[in-house]
């Protein structure tokens, strides 16, 4: 992304006001920081490298070969085996649950955030806001038993819909917080001129607030999508039949079944992570800002 930045070190006095404090003149390099960063980079890379190369090794050669050497005869057999054990179905389930939860979650959160910012003086909306803020402080996993009960009573146990509804609810507090922070930054005059033009609140939301806060919407969407895509506890508790599994759960049961076949297990790990990694390559900056949504603003 910002790779175009030249590597020359400028004294801050001549750099623009948005410039980073990097390269203060006469600075010695931060050796400790550099050492820890590079060390940790190695710690991050080695397992990932091992996972990827091993997934291309044949099970028969796996035990004999040097674990850190790339496969002498790369094979796709592990991937074939994983794909043939219904992974496309689990992939589809994950996709349905993620899209089915993220789109409504962001939509209702956006409407709520808009209402809280625009009508926040009202007692009702103030109460709603504090309720969502409270939701941020509570480990939602702790509510899983009643959620399980509710899903059973709604006859949604073992259905994708049963995964979608709690996922939406769990996504709402943080989404509302982040979105309302951004809607608050829209200049008041713009709302005022919309009002003078006779626009309704719904029109103002759709025509003014939404386009102006689109980056925040993207950020929140990504954050929620990642959380739900990777979610494990809800599918573990709320589904039962194999054909309702989402990827993380499928991964887990696949591992239980084929734990001896390390290359195949690792191929399944790579396959389930691949969609996110592709997204990461496409939009690294958006994804990273999505990950720290609301925390680093």
């Amino acid at each position: 992304m910002s790779v175009t930045q030249t590597t020359k070190r400028e004294p801050t006095a001549t750099s623009g006001t948005h410039r980073r404090p990097q390269g203060r003149s006469g600075e010695r390099p931060n050796w400790l920081g550099a050492a820890v960063s590079w060390l940790w980079l190695a710690v991050v890379i080695v397992p990932i490298y091992w996972i990827v190369i091993t997934s291309f090794k044949a099970q028969s050669t796996y035990y004999a070969s040097n674990p850190l050497a790339p496969p002498s005869e790369p094979t796709l057999a592990n991937y074939k085996m994983v794909i043939e054990s219904d992974f496309p179905l689990y992939f589809l389930n994950s996709l349905i649950v993620t899209i089915g939860a993220v789109v409504p979650a962001v939509a209702v959160a956006f409407m709520a955030a808009y209402a809280i910012v625009r009508g926040g003086a009202g007692r009702f909306l103030r109460g709603v806001n504090s309720l969502f803020l409270m939701g941020l402080a509570i480990p939602l996993q702790a509510t899983i038993i009643p959620v399980y009960l509710i899903i059973i009573r709604l006859h949604l146990y073992d259905s994708l819909m049963g995964l979608i509804l709690p996922s939406i609810a769990f996504a709402i507090p943080l989404s509302v917080l982040v979105l309302s922070n951004f809607i608050r930054d829209v200049p008041k005059e713009l709302f005022e001129s919309m009002r003078l033009d006779g626009a309704s609140e719904v029109t103002t939301l759709w025509r003014l607030a939404f386009p102006l806060t689109r980056p925040a919407v993207v950020t929140v969407t990504i954050y929620n999508a990642l959380t739900i895509w990777n979610g494990f506890l809800l599918p573990l508790i709320l589904t039962q039949s194999p054909d309702k599994r989402t990827l993380p759960l499928a991964l887990w049961s696949f591992q239980g079944q084929f734990s001896v076949n390390v290359p195949a297990v690792l191929a399944s790990v790579v396959l389930t992570s691949l969609p996110i990694l592709i997204l990461y390559v496409v939009g690294r900056r958006q994804l990273l800002s999505g990950l720290t949504a609301g925390f680093s603003k």
Binding site: M111, A112, L131, F132, G135, P146, L165
Partner: peptide, 28 residues
């Protein structure tokens, strides 16, 4: 609400509220 035309606004928060109460507050 204290805003004269605030009638629409509270309704916009209702969908999020309903889902969050249903699967967040009630379970709590």
């Amino acid at each position: 609400t204290r805003e004269a035309r605030g009638g629409v606004l509270p309704w916009l928060a209702v969908p999020a509220l309903v889902i969050f109460v249903g699967f967040g507050v009630i379970p709590l």
